[in-house]
Amino acid sequence: MSLLAVEGLTVKYGPIPALRDVTLGMAEGETLAVVGANGAGKSTLTLAIAGAVRPFAGRITYDGNPLAGLLPEEVTRRGIALVPEGRHIFEGLTVEENLLLGLTARADQASARGALDDIYAAFPILLERRGGLGTRLSGGEQQQLAIARALLSRPRLLILDEPSLGLAPIMVDRVYAILADLRRRGVTLLLIEQNPGRIGEVADRVIVLANGTVQLSGPAAEVLASERLGAAYLGETRGAA
């Protein structure tokens, strides 16, 4: 059974649709990458799943239940965590305070302290800088903080919107190593990137989005090797790889 099913999703900002009739499914444990150019509607897709923008039409089903009408804080409690584009580290809050907020959605608060220690073990830089302001970290460190914060809610589905955006290559390596590790541990990942560049390292399947519609979708190896990839990226094609 699929963990996430998006069917016929249309999202509008005012009269203009940012997503049109998007359908996709994700199996538990799978990594799905969604790629597309500026303005393709990738972030809108993540926000709609997370409950932060309201669909105009269509259904989103998670673990067998419709998410329609749930507030973002309720969606998170169901086990979906979003690391949004731009990281959104809280200004004026310390690294540790940022992380504590990640615990908000956990059902059992008893295990919270242990979870924080585990995160510090996995992200030593955050332990080192835990008393400092989160916004003082470098871009790559902030991205790690954003991912760590999302992980603290113990999500079954983790959505990452352009996690490598604006990072130095060495930091992109680090982020992708983290993603590969999460994938190995069975976390279902929805990975958004603008360019197909490195997604082959982690993605099981790839969807290409352009102008708010799915242009191409299929197993990662096929889509990334497809001669129609370039055209799909520009929104000039439709269908399977």
Partner: peptide
């Protein structure tokens, strides 16, 4: 306090706070 930290977070970035589970 936890709720205090949630309030400070909500004050700088309400949507992000809610995405983390902070109840509006």
């Amino acid at each position: 306090t936890r709720i205090g930290i949630e309030m400070r977070a909500a004050a700088v970035d309400f949507r992000m706070a809610r995405l983390l589970g902070v109840r509006a």
